[in-house]
């Protein structure tokens, strides 16, 4: 039995697929790959696959890990895994690396995001300058029990910078995203946009990397 971790991109129209859809697409791609993949035991047996940090519907990513197992121990060439999986995936998915997992999923501490929006880039830029320099940015969300809670978003931000890119306003942010606490970038953006009251559209949120506590790249 060997553990395999692949990294894939989910871009373009693929962002419209939910996490559940993504799991189903990969289940089929694995089944179709012909690898002797490991199935979970028990009554409702299915192909074992694990995603580190599920991506919300609408988000793109350039760095999504997925783990599975091959029953046989004979090493398989990386390119073989990449090619066989890619040939069974819909448009917008691209597996680009495969290796033995180095870190545990629970080691993921941060996600690096790029948040891009169209609108009056100058106005958005100066508004964000003001917004992000505050000591406190209250964001409200519900916990699993449906109880609303207000927190300070600043505490979830490890690094943040922003820039103009043609007519776009772009935020690059490293946000906490571990199993116990995380900040969804859309919450930050929506709070900003309703605070500054400047119109923005075609907001694209892309995960660039998953990072460890020491900001090294999750592998």
């Amino acid at each position: 039995m060997q553990n395999v971790r692949v990294f894939f991109r989910k871009t373009g129209d693929a962002r419209f697929l939910s996490h559940l859809d993504v799991m189903r697409c990969f289940t089929r791609a694995l089944k179709r790959s012909g690898f002797d993949v490991w199935y979970t035991q028990g009554f409702n047996t299915h192909i074992y696959l694990m995603f580190a940090s599920p991506l919300s519907l609408g988000f793109e990513s350039e760095y999504e890990p997925m783990d599975f197992r091959i029953v046989d121990d004979t090493p398989v060439a990386e390119s073989e895994i990449i090619d066989r999986l890619n040939s069974g995936l819909p448009k917008g998915f691209e597996v680009f690396a495969a290796s033995v997992p180095e870190h545990e999923h629970t080691d993921v501490a941060f996600s690096e995001w790029e948040i891009k929006m169209h609108g009056d880039a100058d106005a958005l830029f100066s508004a964000f300058e003001d917004f992000i320099s505050r000591d406190e940015i209250p964001v409200t969300r519900k916990n699993k029990k449906g109880v609303e809670r207000t927190e300070n978003a600043i505490e979830y931000i490890k690094k943040i910078s922003y820039r103009k890119d043609g007519s776009c306003f772009v935020i690059d942010a490293v946000l906490r995203s571990d199993t116990s606490s995380s900040l969804n970038p859309s919450l930050l953006v929506n709070t900003f946009l309703s605070d500054c009251r400047i119109g923005a559209e075609d907001i694209r949120i892309t995960r660039k990397k998953l990072l460890l506590q020491d900001l090294e790249i999750f592998k």
Partner: peptide, 24 residues
């Protein structure tokens, strides 16, 4: 494309309208 993106950002199940499936 931007009209398409705007519309799809607002609907419940955007994947109904994208195409791009395996076999398309």
């Amino acid at each position: 494309e931007s009209v398409f993106n705007r519309m799809l950002a607002e609907v419940q199940k955007p994947a109904r309208y994208t195409g791009g499936e395996l076999g398309a």
